[in-house]
Design a binder for these strands. Structure first.
Lengths: 325, 325
DNA sequence: CATTTTCATGTTAGCGCTAACATTTCAGGT
DNA sequence: ACCTGAAATGTTAGCGCTAACATGAAAATG
């Protein structure tokens, strides 16, 4: 910065201002400075800037997985808001582990992020305390809470309930639940499923197939086969995500079971393939991209110190009835 | 750091050493310091550390897309090597745009990354020059080159040629090419396709369907329909990726064309759904995860200043013949 | 027991930048 | 010509940390 200044005949601080507070430097001088910056190939040092200004212009984003389209879509939304605002994202992959999440928070806190975006609400109390102590605002994504934390999402439980009710309305009587990963969101969908079935007097715990391993299509196929062996009267299954559902669909085809006549299948998320398999998959469309944009906007407002009237944004969900049910 | 030192009765530098050069502090003192760090909730400031030490312990990763599983898998490989080595990733999404790539490089250079991992080889000369000038080592991923740049990947052209030859060997005579996005890798696969067909005396430019828009399954379906209308004698199609291929497959089913009897379909990448659609998709399996790990390892070696004998790692590919051909 | 070597810890200075205050310049009014 | 105040630019100090050298204490050596 000093060298650029020398080249133009001004002091370093004027170069700094030309770059970051353009209105404080006269137009002629500023264009001369920018030209010199370009000519000399000067690259500002963000560490020094962060150190001197106590603002990193960086936001930490913690998501459970990079291989799950759901979070990638959310990330895209976040980026589309943060980038234009001059913020950079630090992406931390928690691998669905609370321990790793805490560890990542610690590690990334060293970057002094101006804010944090987190997936889910079930962090250990230590998590919020750490952020509190550092005075870093956070927004929680994907789900809702009434405990005062800022959040953007939809009710996972209501969504689980809604899709189960859809299956009931289509005349299904023995509706199974297929769950993998068993993170908090899946468990809340399971709660919704139970609520709907209990209300209809049709709940049977034996019809729940839960596997803590990450979901794959193979797992969906295996689980469906197992389920039908144990419960031949089962006539529908709500899979906690589309991957499992597509695997289940393939298994039905392999077993020669007509979908939806003999077996109805519902997924969750409405990923691209859901509309493409045959028969097209009934599922719940979730506003992933918008969760990203809204969460990022809410966070930026918090960083700017704007006290927001609404701390909890419910973006809803949509049951997508298709041929698989 | 000074406060932690005060709490234990040592100077700040000893705290620094206890954290980052443990062998230089006696065991008893170190454990006392670490205890105080924990008790006081001290979080080191990475900016200050980077500024003082001139090393950021950060690697910049530039990939064209976050929604493409191919790059996510590569990212996972990179992370698995970089994290244990104490490096953090900065992920830049170039959206397949050379302009954005250059812009991202500029922006992220402000973090003074210790190294850069880039997808592809076709950056403007300015790109390599900028890195050169800053003395930052780079590794290029996904493809191969003989121009001396460090790279880890496989020959996109050979892979395109191999899968096309596979279709020829299965007796196909009018083999179309379906391409989207048209980034350098797709164009190289196209080159391989042309090479194979020309060698067999069966090349026909009219059978190439190229669309610069990002690929979707819908696009694959549309392109196949269009292709068959214009060229009813077409009996096979090599799609530049699995998404297009799955869309094409669905279109065939919709049109009542038997796959593979009437129409053979081949994809590229061997993503999870390729083995799950019916019929299972013939495709080319690519070593995405390993490209990530090997590229990261090569970069770390370069950062450490180890002159590597091999600058170009060819990890190969595998044609996966399945029922769709 | 003096001398050397090793190990553990401390002191000083500075990384590149910006906040806060200080100074200069200049347009506009008297 | 002088004054005033706003706009443009400069000076000083310090953000939190570590490199490099300095010191002191303990261990090894003859």
């Amino acid at each position: 910065m000093h060298d650029v200044g020398l080249a133009v005949g001004v002091s370093a601080i004027t170069v700094s201002r030309a770059l970051y507070s353009p209105e404080r430097v006269s137009d002629t001088l500023r264009s001369k400075i920018l030209e010199a910056v370009d000519r000399l190939g000067y690259v500002p040092n963000r560490s020094a800037r962060a150190l001197a200004s106590a603002r990193s212009q960086t936001v930490l984003v913690l998501i459970p997985s990079l291989t799950n389209t759901v979070f990638i879509d959310t990330l895209a939304g976040i980026e589309d808001v943060l980038r234009p605002a001059g913020y950079q994202m630090l992406i931390g992959n928690t691998h669905y582990s609370a321990g790793e999440e805490m560890q990542l928070l610690r590690a990334y806190l060293e970057h002094q992020p101006d804010g944090v975006l987190v997936t889910g609400l079930s962090q250990p109390p230590e998590f919020a305390q750490t952020l509190e102590r550092q005075g870093i605002p956070a927004v929680y994504m994907m789900d809702l809470t009434a405990d005062g934390r800022r959040c953007v999402g939809f009710s996972q439980e209501d969504a689980g309930e809604a899709i189960t009710r859809h299956l009931l309305e289509r005349g299904r009587r023995r509706i199974a639940f297929m769950g993998a990963q068993l993170d908090e969101r899946v468990l809340k969908r399971l709660d919704g499923y139970r609520k709907a079935l209990r209300a209809a007097g049709r709940y049977d715990a034996a019809l729940e197939d839960l596997d803590p391993a990450p979901s794959t299509m193979q797992m969906g196929a295996d689980a469906l086969t197992r389920l039908l062996q144990a419960h031949p009267d089962c006539d529908a299954v709500f899979c906690c995500n589309d991957d499992l559902a597509i695997g289940a669909l393939a298994a039905c085809q392999r077993l020669g079971l007509a979908v939806p006549q003999r077996m109805a299948i519902a997924g969750f998320n409405d990923l691209q393939p859901a509309g493409w398999v045959t028969p097209p998959l009934t599922t719940v469309a979730t506003p992933r991209y918008r969760i990203g944009t809204e969460a990022a906007r809410l966070l930026l407002a918090s960083i700017a110190g704007e006290a927001d009237a609404v701390t909890c944004h419910d973006l809803g969900f949509t049951v997508m009835p298709r041929a698989s049910s």
